[in-house]
Design a protein around this nucleic acid. Structure first.
Length: 434
RNA sequence: GCCCGGGUGGUGUAGUGGCCCAUCAUACAACCCUGUCACGGUUGUGACGCGGGUUCAAAUCCCGCCUCGGGCGCCA
């Protein structure tokens, strides 16, 4: 195995050993072909029945699809072969035989339901287009990290087991922590603020968040990847600049570095990175614009949250990414700061993709007294959050940040219909394994 | 959490009371075929989510459960 050659590197004239999965066997009678697949692609193995060792032919053509085999032989140029080269085998070893009855078809001739695919993710990932999603996911996360570094951010990791939630206890997964009640964290919100208030100033985190909401939609997960930013001495506009930069960088990285994967997904032709200058509509402008579309039965009034229908109408109208800024304070969390000259108006913003919300952010309340007041107004006991609030007594700069839904970013970049496509092993209301 | 629509061989489907001992594709088995590239051909194997009910007769209608998908709410 140490001398194994990847199929894409098998050059005519070489004697090689390739190893991988049996993608398909085509038996034409006197001649037969075994298509061997590895992580780099496929290569054809030729069997001429009358001219080759009988045992070799029997083993090679008797093996079931998706079995793991290793083949040694000479690579020859062959225009009639799918990749232009084929291997004439001297030796073939069946390393791991596959059950002939597969739970789904990795060659993709017959579709499988998402549920069947997720139950058999290993087989599902043998499909080129599924593998492409996760190669692109890796590239998106790499590009996001790089972009944050360019914005002088430090990557942090905050605890996922916590004593209290961000906004109360209702939508948290409770766990037992050495006999004490604890929760899976729904957001790194409070922790990232605590670090932004130190000399570190600018931080980002890419990590899991857990939400116990019993929704069942194509765009929600109970365990998701949150891409978070928090920066000291930043205001909402600064945070929006960062969000815009990260989202745009992700698109650009995919466009530049993932052409094979886009090809596999059938997106190579139409794929386009946005120009990175997303319109910033105030909440007030947004509801006016939604009302003007005439898509809604009832006109929105100031103070309403935007129903899904309204988001869709506005998304169609704008036709690309856009921000909604200056939301009514009442419908934004308490830790979002109000405008100094209008306490009805928050500095909260959302970044919207025409299909759904991607980002939620804002400038944070950094004044200790106002923060304590915010907890009380939200019906939360400030004492429970003392680990957090007390740091606001020792020099907390103004700061702003956001949370970006990692899977939603991947989903919208690739036009996936279901967010579960963007996660290897998604956790939803019904799915706890694999 | 509320509302809607589904669950048929390994996989994906057709089939709204008897005309269907369940259709088609693919997979699987056997045979034929010396250049396939979704190879082709012949034959064969294999299924009505679970439990109860209605009916002379149920995949099909009703009830409960499990499960999948979608919409809304909420969100990232």
């Amino acid at each position: 195995m140490q001398d194994r050659t990847y199929t894409e590197n098998a050059e005519p004239g070489d004697d090689v050993t390739v190893a991988g999965w049996v993608h398909e066997i085509r038996d034409l009678g006197g001649i037969a072909f075994l298509i061997l697949r590895d992580t780099t692609g496929k290569i054809q193995i030729k069997f001429e029945k009358d001219e080759m060792d009988e045992d070799l032919v029997e083993t090679g053509l008797g093996v079931s699809r998706e079995s793991v085999v290793s083949v040694s032989g000479s690579v020859e140029e062959e225009p009639r072969a799918p990749t232009g080269v084929e291997i004439t085998p001297d030796e073939l070893e069946v390393i791991s035989e596959a059950d002939p009855e597969l739970p789904l078809d990795p060659s993709g001739k017959v579709d499988a339901d998402l549920s069947t695919r997720l139950d058999n993710r290993t087989l599902d990932l043998r499909k080129e287009e599924v593998q492409a999603i996760f190669e692109i996911r890796a590239e998106i996360l790499r590009a996001a990290r790089e972009q944050f570094r360019e914005f002088h951010c430090t990557e942090i990791n905050t605890p996922k087991i916590v004593a209290t939630g961000t906004e109360g206890g209702t939508e948290l997964f409770p766990i037992t922590y050495f006999g004490e009640e604890a929760f899976m964290n729904q957001s790194p919100q409070l922790f990232k603020q605590l670090i932004a208030g130190s000399n570190v100033e600018r931080v980002f985190e890419i990590g899991p968040i857990f939400r116990a909401e019993e929704h069942n939609t194509p765009r929600h997960l109970n365990e998701a990847t949150s891409i978070d930013f928090e920066g000291a001495f930043c205001d909402a506009d600064d945070a929006m600049d960062v969000a815009e930069g990260v989202v745009t960088a992700a698109y650009e990285a995919v466009a530049e570095n993932c052409s094979d994967e886009l090809e596999a997904l059938g997106l190579a032709e139409e794929f386009e990175a946005p120009d990175g200058d997303f319109p910033r509509l105030s909440y007030e402008e947004a509801i006016e614009r939604i009302n003007a579309t005439g898509e809604l039965d009832e006109q929105l009034v100031w103070g309403d949250d935007l129903p899904t229908e309204a988001e869709k109408a506005l998304g169609d109208d704008v036709g690309g990414h856009y921000f909604i800024t200056d939301w009514p304070s009442e419908i934004k969390p308490f830790y979002i700061k109000d405008h100094d000259d209008d306490e009805q108006l928050s500095t909260g913003f959302d970044l919207m993709h025409p299909r759904m919300e991607l980002v939620s952010g804002g400038q944070r309340e950094h004044r200790h007294e106002a923060l304590i007041e915010g907890f009380k107004q939200q019906g939360l006991d400030p004492d429970q959050f003392e680990y957090y609030t007390k740091m606001f007594k020792y020099g907390m700069p103004p700061h702003a940040g956001f949370g970006l839904g990692g899977e939603r970013l991947i989903m919208t970049i690739l036009g996936l219909d279901n967010i579960r496509e963007a996660v290897l092993f998604p956790r939803d209301r019904q799915r706890l394994s694999p």
